[in-house]
Design a protein around this nucleic acid. Structure first.
Length: 288
DNA sequence: GTTCCGGCGTACTTCCACAG
DNA sequence: CTGTGGAAGTACGCCGGAAC
């Protein structure tokens, strides 16, 4: 037993865990005092703990006017915009997406998320959901951005109210990425996912079927450049979006959030443009 | 009648590309 | 880095026709 105990003590020392008190001395515990964390755990949580002796960290004050959009709930911003481009597609048969149905454009619900990473699973969350549709003669974009972790529930709630029961989802790789991610977030909020059971046009696959081999790859950025002649200027690469938001959460500037919003907005409009090309069935353009 | 072979459809597996 | 859809490849069963 002693050898095992010694080994355990050694392992604890290596891990930096303080040995437990040698004997349970029955001293009256100070009222409601939080137990001290082992050093290594405290280090891991350092981001949330104040360095001893340092002045109390002041809560970062964010000027709401510096954030994108308007505040519609605690920790939740809404940005709305309208544009003439992309034009609304005509009613079209969605055979190109292997959906044997004629789709009325008013049912189309384009969406794209910005997330904290690509790792997937429950650790990744969407901090922005962008939605596009054709409404009252123009292309409408609505973006939900959470500015606190607690804002997520309100964001999902709001997003769910936007979905018509007959909506046809449109995304780029959304069947594999955005939709499962949102489903997980809804599940964690103990809510039924409103995306469940809806038709879904994932444009990645029609694009691949048509231009695989002809283009260097079939990423959205490539598709928008080849098909729509979109050249992004001052665009924040998608891979930098997580850092932009996490940086803001840690008290960083709000400017990168505007860049993320612009990036997401361009994704939505490109999605609309590519969909229009497929829906309009312009063979001269669709040819490789 | 039996065997062999090719064509076809289905089921399954593997691999790749894409999302921030 | 992860999860997913879909393309591509492979295996298998079934069927019909030809050859013996």
């Amino acid at each position: 037993m002693s050898a095992l105990a010694d080994k355990l003590r050694g392992l604890r020392r290596q891990a930096g865990v303080l040995p437990p008190a040698p004997a349970p001395v029955p001293t009256p515990a100070p009222a409601r005092q939080r137990p001290a964390l082992p050093d290594n755990i405290a280090q891991l949580l350092g981001i949330r703990q104040r360095v001893q002796g340092s002045p109390p960290r002041r809560k970062a004050v964010v000027d709401p006017a510096s954030l994108p959009g308007v505040t519609i709930a605690p920790g939740l911003q809404l940005c709305e915009a309208r544009s003439a481009w992309p034009p609304a597609p005509p009613a079209f048969h969605a055979g190109f997406a292997r959906i044997d149905e004629v789709i009325d454009p008013t049912r189309l619900f384009l969406f794209d998320t910005e997330t904290t990473g690509l790792a997937g699973g429950t650790g990744t969350r969407a901090f922005m959901i962008g939605v596009g549709d054709w409404h009252e003669g123009g292309f409408r974009e609505r973006q939900l951005l959470i500015t606190t972790l607690a804002g997520e529930a309100a964001m999902l709630e709001c997003f769910a109210t936007w979905l018509r029961p007959d909506a046809v989802l449109v995304s780029y790789n959304g069947k594999s990425y955005d939709a499962p991610l949102l489903k997980t977030r809804f599940r964690l909020q103990q809510r039924t996912c409103p995306l469940e059971g809806l038709a879904h046009i994932d444009l990645l696959h029609p694009v691949r079927r048509r231009w695989r081999g002809a283009w260097e790859n079939c990423r959205l950025a490539t598709a928008e450049r080849k098909l729509l002649q979109v050249v992004r200027e001052d665009d924040l690469p998608g891979s930098e979006a997580p850092a932009a938001w996490l940086g803001f959460l840690r008290g960083g500037p709000t400017a990168p959030l505007h860049q993320v919003a612009r990036h997401n907005s361009q994704d939505l409009r490109s999605l609309g443009g590519i969909l229009h090309r497929f829906a309009a069935h312009d063979d001269s353009v669709m040819a490789p």
